[in-house]
Amino acid sequence: MTAFTASVCRSCGAVAYPPRRRCRACGKTGSDPVPLEGKATLVTFTRVYNLSLAFEERYITVGIVEFQSGARALGRLAVDEPEIGMELSCYVAPVRTVGYETYEGLWFERPGSPAA
């Protein structure tokens, strides 16, 4: 389980990430947290080159995935040759350092890879 959670609408069951108090699908207020976990499928991705000063890499790979729960999220890909539709598993690790602050975020890798 990751520290990242989505929300499920108490009225219609719609899943949202980032979590929402008010449901985008039915407009009702009230939701419960659910963990972002399990297998995910890659929806789209890109290698980004012109990065902000916070990054020393020549490029990073980011993508959008869809979890089995229906929640979608964007995250870093620890995959060399990503393909749309591939199955991925999720872990949490640092994604960006701003000043002395390090932010953790979602990473995706091929299932079975050793988490970085």
Binding site: N50, L51, L74, V95
Partner: peptide
């Protein structure tokens, strides 16, 4: 971009446009 769900990952406008363009 969304501060927690996009910006912290190093996502830029070209990155969003790149993911859109691929599809």
């Amino acid at each position: 971009t969304h501060p927690e769900a996009e910006y912290i990952y190093g996502v830029t406008l070209p990155a969003l446009a790149g993911m859109f363009a691929r599809l």
